[in-house]
Simulated scan of single mutants.
Amino acid sequence: MKLNSVAHKEGYTWIRQGIWLFKQNPLGFLMLVFMYVFVAQLAVLVPVIGVFAVLLLTPTLSVGFMTACRQAIQKERIRPTVYLIALQSTPVIRKRILQLGLVYSALILALSFILSMLVDFELLLPLMTGDKPITPEAVREIYLILFFGGLLYVPVAMLMWFSPVLIAWAEMSVPQALFSSAIACWANRGAFFLYIAIWGAILIAIPLTIGSILDALDLGQAASFIIAPLSMAGLTVMHCSFFATWKACFAEKESATLIA
């Protein structure tokens, strides 16, 4: 497994390749993302255990989606059971991918604890209960959560970005996969910065702009019917582009190529 160093502009190319990959099987990819969102929402309804289960299985689901990307390139049918492919692998891979899930759960728990010390969540209760008007202090806390949460999640994302597939496809140990993932992200930080900036504009700025325009036209009720499908499609293309980052950062011994 060879680590590649790419130019900054590759961040934009990854998104183009993600769009191309999505076009190979849009219904299959949309099905997978919808399944994940639906099951995750149901799991969250189960106190503590549900959230832990989602975090624990996140690396497993990541391997499943990346495998679906391979299948789409090879013109194979995408099935919902692709999500289980890591658990159906060898006992060693299954053990390591679940261990990685435990590591991810611990990292998110630590991140949440640190964030709770930086932000006053009590000010956000009006937003969650709807009993009181939203105060300027609550809005300020929201921005602080987004800022500090994003900042704290960067090292977690670097560790987890490639580690699931490095375990499943390169048969690395958990520590080796985490280290290799972080090094790959750091070595290509320019491309990743451009990549994340573009996705931020697509998934955040564009929906907010559309919502503002519809509100100005007194069509606010129609916003959800327009923004929700666009956001789901954008989220799906973003997941497809994860495979493009893998192909660019790690040389693979396979004939499948991406076109952009």
Rank of each mutant, 00 (worst) to 15 (best):
G150F: 09
P229G: 05
Q41G: 13
V103I: 13
T90D: 11
A53V: 15
A222P: 03
R96E: 03
W169R: 07
R16V: 05
A110I: 10
P207G: 02
V39C: 02
P26T: 02
H239V: 15
Q41M: 13
V6C: 06
L102R: 11
L208E: 14
A157Q: 04
A157I: 05
L217I: 10
M117T: 14
K247L: 11
A43W: 07
A223W: 05
I213D: 06
K132C: 08
T209V: 15
F162C: 00
V6S: 02
G18A: 01
P26A: 04
N188V: 05
F121V: 07
G101W: 06
Y104F: 13
K247R: 10
F22K: 00
L194E: 12
A110T: 11
V92D: 10
S180K: 10
V33N: 13
T129Q: 09
W20K: 00
Q41F: 14
G200C: 03
D120K: 13
F65G: 03
R189M: 09
N188C: 09
I206F: 10
E254L: 13
D215P: 08
I183D: 15
Q71M: 14
I210N: 10
F52M: 11
I85S: 10
T257K: 12
Y153Q: 13
S112Q: 07
L194I: 15
I226M: 14
P164D: 03
V237L: 09
K2G: 15
Q99S: 05
Y36R: 03
A168V: 01
V51Y: 09
F162K: 02
P175M: 03
T58M: 09
I114T: 14
A182Q: 14
L152Q: 08
L146G: 07
W14N: 04
S224M: 12
V139S: 11
S89H: 05
F113R: 13
G149K: 04
I73N: 03
V119A: 00
M117G: 14
K23G: 03
A256W: 04
A182S: 14
P175N: 02
L27W: 03
F243W: 12
F121R: 05
V119N: 01
V46G: 06
A138W: 01
Q221A: 14
P207K: 06
S173M: 03
G149D: 04
L111M: 14
A40L: 12
L124V: 11
S105D: 08
Y195S: 07
L98Q: 04
G18N: 01
L152A: 09
D218Q: 10
T245R: 10
T58N: 05
W186I: 14
F121Q: 06
E171W: 00
V119R: 07
S173R: 08
K132M: 15
L125E: 15
Q41T: 14
L115F: 02
L219V: 06
P26N: 01
Q41A: 12
Q74V: 02
M117Y: 15
E141Y: 02
E254W: 02
P155R: 04
L57D: 05
L55S: 12
D218T: 10
V82N: 01
F179I: 13
T257A: 13
I49Y: 12
G64K: 03
G211A: 07
I196F: 12
Q74R: 12
